[in-house]
Every structure is written in structure tokens, then in C-alpha cells.
Write a protein that binds this DNA or RNA. Structure first.
Lengths: 187, 187
DNA sequence: CGGGCCATGTAATTTGTTACATGATTCC
DNA sequence: GGAATCATGTAACAAATTACATGGCCCG
């Protein structure tokens, strides 16, 4: 059972409208960055393979060697079939991995870490809220994008609230009895 | 700038207590599965490399060729240094990637997808709540684990609420005027 | 004595990151 | 004319997944 999400993400974006590899790279670095980042060095090879398999097709050329791709009927069927498959729920979150190891820090260090994280999430929330406030697109896929954006907003708000709560927990533990920075074993 | 989170995740778990590769694999498949899944085929090679670099050490052997590893002072310094570095906020979420492409489905199909997702998240929430209700550990790292668990509970609750809201949005759009399943282009 | 789980590894393949490499247009 | 951005690719390397491979211990 293969994942190959990038392949389908590209297909999905091309289902919305024809794009160049460069356009795709900007989208993967923009609105899709939080769910599926991808760099141009990954994108160009998958465009080549998708075109090879007849799932997309180069529809036009532009100024600086620009190649505009569009999805084919076969490609559309392919992504629709993928959407009907069982999603993979595994995901990796390097920032949250650290939370498990926060006990290895001094309390004030852990609190500073959480404060830094809160700042990052507040910036992201602002970005998402600006997106939601912006003029609504008339594209067909706009409503799905709006659902995703709403999730992003709730997610960031949730983290910010949890973060404040977590800092409070650490502060009260550190103030209370029996809080000791970790220091196991001999060498 | 390298990530190599697995290396630090292993180090962090061994800072808590000595473990075997098998123990680690079970933890990566259990409590860490939601933030950093890893399989045994990844774990054994990193154990070998960490031991090679003097960051961990095999402290004992057991019955079935069991090898128990413990962290060294150098390893403890290494993970603490890592905790002070800037975290990477990129993450991949294959289930949420699909939300961006929900517009390619018929409304009832999209709603069924979301219902399935809701079921998965309700099960995970139950699992987390059971973990929180369980007897508190007296391990040093227990409080950090508790913070992570609390985040997990809030996260799952947030998704479940968003999911119901999203289904409602789709239902009201489909009921209302101008909702058309997507179907671009000629072949 | 058999099935399930404990236990450890390696190999092949795919996916993702970082670095390398090049060149055209546009705007100031 | 110089900087920023548009634009496309390849190569080397690291990380992750899947499959292959083996065997011991324990419980019923």
C-alpha cells in the first residue's frame, strides 16, 4: 500500500486549473505548506511522470521556457479514485515531539520554549484569519479550501490555548513542591 | 540543517529509562505514533549508530537475544542541546490534504468521507481520554507526557467539532442553489 | 506442541531534502 | 545594468516504508 500523496496533490491542483511547475511549487510553499510541503525538485519529476502516464498533459508554453500543464480525463478519474481510498492517519509533528521531552529541560527553559512556539502559532493564526477575511474566490474548489482554512484557524487557536495552559501547569509545578530538573545516571 | 528527529526521539526515550529496540518500536507505535511513528527497521540501525557514537550504551542482555540500551552522559547532553535548537514547524498530514480536494467529490460522498474521519477521531479521543484517566505514572517525564496527552485530547475534540461543522456546511451548500459536482475539461 | 508474541536484524525501493546548475524576463 | 523573481531541471544524499529473513520463549 503506497501513499504517494504528492502525485495526487499535484493532480488535485491541476484539476482546479492548469499550472506550471513553478506555480505548483508556490502553492506547496503557500497554502499547502501546512499539510503537504514540497519543493520544486520533487515537483518537476512527478510532472514528467504524470505526463508520461497520460494523467496530465502540457497544454501550452510561455515566455521563459514555461510549461503549462492541465489534467486529463484519466487524471481526473485517478484522483477521484484516490479520494475514495482509505486515508493514512499517520503524521509527523517535529514540534510536538519535543513536548514529550520537555521534562529534560529546566522549567523556565520549557516555558520559554512554549512562549516561542506560541508566537509562531499566533503569526500563523493571523495569516489564516487574513486568508479567511480576504475576498472569496469564485473557483469551484473554493469551498473546500474554506473548510481547510477554518480547520487551520481552529487548530491554531487550540494550540495557543493549550500552550498557555501548559505554561501555567509548568509554572505551578515549579512553584509547588517536588519539581526537580531531570538528571539521571552516571557516565 | 538536518532534522533527524528519530535519533533524538530515541535518545529522549532512553533518557526516561533503559529500553530494548523492541520496547522502542512499541512506544513509537503507541504513544508516539501520532507525532512520530517509526518502525523497527528504522530503529535498530539508529541504535547501532548512537551506540557507535557513544551517546547510548548496551547496559545488559536478556533472554531472546535481547539488548537493553541506556543513555550516556554524552547522549543526555546531546538531546538537551537539540531541545534548545529551533524546532521545525513543517508537518505532513495526508488526511487533511484530502480536504483541499473534497470539491472533486459529490457532496454526499464528501460527507461520508468526513463521517468516516469523525469515527476515527472519536476512537482516538477515547483512547486519549482513557490514557488521561489511567493511574498517573511516577516517572520523571510523566508531566510532559501529560501535557502532550492533554494536547491530543483538545486536538481530537477540535477536529470532531470542525468535522461536524464542515459536514453541515456541505449539506447546506448542496441543499442550496448552485452546488455542482466538479467536472472540468474535455479529453 | 503449536500459535502468538518477543526479539533483532538486512535489503530493496521510494520519498524527501539540499545542493548544484542554468537561463530568461521584468522592474527599477 | 543589476537585482529580484520567474522558470526548469539534475544529482547526491538522507530518511522512511515494505519486504525479506530468522529464531527464541512462553502460555495454553
Amino acid at each position: 500500500m503506497r501513499i504517494m500523496s504528492l502525485r495526487y496533490a499535484v493532480l488535485g491542483l491541476l484539476a482546479d486549473r492548469p499550472r506550471t511547475g513553478y506555480d505548483l511549487a508556490r502553492t506547496f510553499d503557500g497554502s499547502l505548506a501546512h499539510v503537504w510541503p514540497a519543493s520544486h525538485s520533487q515537483i518537476y519529476p512527478v510532472l514528467a511522470r504524470l505526463a508520461d502516464g497520460g494523467l496530465i498533459r502540457q497544454s501550452a508554453s510561455g515566455p521563459r521556457g514555461k510549461r503549462i500543464y492541465e489534467i486529463t480525463r484519466a487524471g481526473l478519474e485517478e484522483i477521484r479514485a484516490w479520494l475514495r481510498t482509505e486515508p493514512d492517519h499517520g503524521s509527523r509533528n517535529p514540534a510536538f515531539l519535543r513536548v514529550f521531552f520537555l521534562w529534560l529541560m529546566e522549567p523556565d527553559e520549557a516555558i520559554r520554549f512554549l512562549e516561542d512556539e506560541a508566537r509562531v502559532h499566533e503569526a500563523t493564526l493571523l495569516e489564516f484569519e487574513a486568508g479567511a477575511a480576504g475576498s472569496p474566490s469564485d473557483r469551484e474548489g473554493a469551498w473546500a479550501f474554506r473548510l481547510a482554512l477554518e480547520w487551520g484557524i481552529r487548530y491554531e487557536r487550540g494550540i495557543i490555548e493549550w500552550n498557555a495552559w501548559a505554561r501555567d501547569q509548568i509554572a505551578s509545578m515549579a512553584g509547588g513542591a517536588g519539581f526537580e530538573p531531570a538528571s539521571p545516571l552516571r557516565d
